[in-house]
Design a protein around this nucleic acid. Structure first.
Lengths: 124, 124
DNA sequence: TATCTGTTATATATATTGTATAACAACCGA
DNA sequence: TCGGTTGTTATACAATATATATAACAGATA
């Protein structure tokens, strides 16, 4: 899986890394049961500190994307609580859609964009 | 317009305030041409520092929601660059929808939630 | 035993966030 | 003109978040 970090971004490195891994899962580049590199290995590869990677992994664990094991390392293991996930998503969408309404973007416009992104991910 | 700040939130106060004002515009509680309270007045009302309010106003200006005037104060003035706004929205939606796909949420599920939120805002 | 995991603990440097005080220029009403 | 308002800017300070660096630990593995 390809990981790209923008060091000039205003977004924290561990957040970027978390997102990249989530992209990887969404596009099926990595899937249930797959191993992620060890924190030290990935840190070395990207050129960042071990703790930054560990922070990303710990968040991914809390959010239900991986399980951490001392022997195996980090393994993709999606905890699907769909009800909860939809609730979380709704909260995040509120701000985005409020902005959209201010900018004259219609519900149909949003549907189109959502559809496009789903297609992007499904193609990988 | 009602403004509610959660001081225990992990979200910065000036971000919360920005969002609340965007909600106010999206729900037509405040509209084009309306005046926002002065930075000092709103800071006093909420119980926060003047500069925190100023930061929220400055961001709202940069993002094209208000115009700031020395004499009139902050005035709602939406700069509608729909193409740009859709592009920005798409970028924000990518992470959210990647998470959704991981959690087995379908495109139809997202449409429903988006529809619900649009209804919420349209009712005010 | 040597080596690999995640985990935890310190320490340090920098950036962000929020507050505090102060002053400035432009405007407005009396 | 005077006093008060507006956003704006500057400086300083404390608290927190972010990222790095080094080190050590317990559990698993070969």
């Amino acid at each position: 899986m390809y990981v790209k970090i923008d060091f000039n971004s205003d977004e924290a490195i561990y957040i970027q890394l978390r997102n990249q891994i989530i992209y990887g899962i969404a596009t099926s580049q990595i899937q249930e049961g797959d191993n992620l590199p060890s924190v030290r290995e990935l840190a070395e590869y990207i050129g960042i500190n071990m703790h930054t990677v560990n922070k990303a992994y710990t968040i991914l664990k809390q959010e239900g994307y991986v399980k951490l094991d001392r022997r195996k390392g980090a393994v993709i293991a999606i905890d699907i609580d769909k009800i909860q996930a939809i609730e979380d998503m709704k909260e995040e969408l509120r701000v985005i859609l409020a902005k959209a309404i201010c900018k004259n973007i219609s519900c149909q416009d949003v549907f189109e964009v959502v559809g496009e992104i789903f297609n992007e991910f499904e193609r990988g």
